[in-house]
Amino acid sequence: MSKEFLGEFEELVLTMAGILQDEAYGNAIVNEIKARVGRDVNLSAVHVTLYRLEDKGFVKSKMGGATNVRGGRRKRIFTITNAGLSMLRAMKESRMDLWKLIPQLKMIGI
């Protein structure tokens, strides 16, 4: 596990997939990132990242049901796997550990 790393963008997309749960598909993630972080990201980049995450086993995908919108095309729904969740958790924890090592006094001094 420790040998796998996530890039910054991968982590962002994986986090969004975790947040959106059953509604996590390409476009929704793009919109969610826009809404929560304010970043304009490209749809294709999100797709490629999702597939890469799938290859690494952090998300699973399945085709959702047909809808009336989007020309009747089904959505590819990505769900975060346990491995994905623990990866996110591990990354968060290691970052917190590092964060704790930064001397807080300096902040006050400013």
Binding site: Y25, G26, N27, V30, L43, R70, G71, R76
Partner: peptide
Amino acid sequence: LYEGIEGDLLEEYE
């Protein structure tokens, strides 16, 4: 992959 991508593109297009 086609259907998922096409759907997302269509949604954005709409």
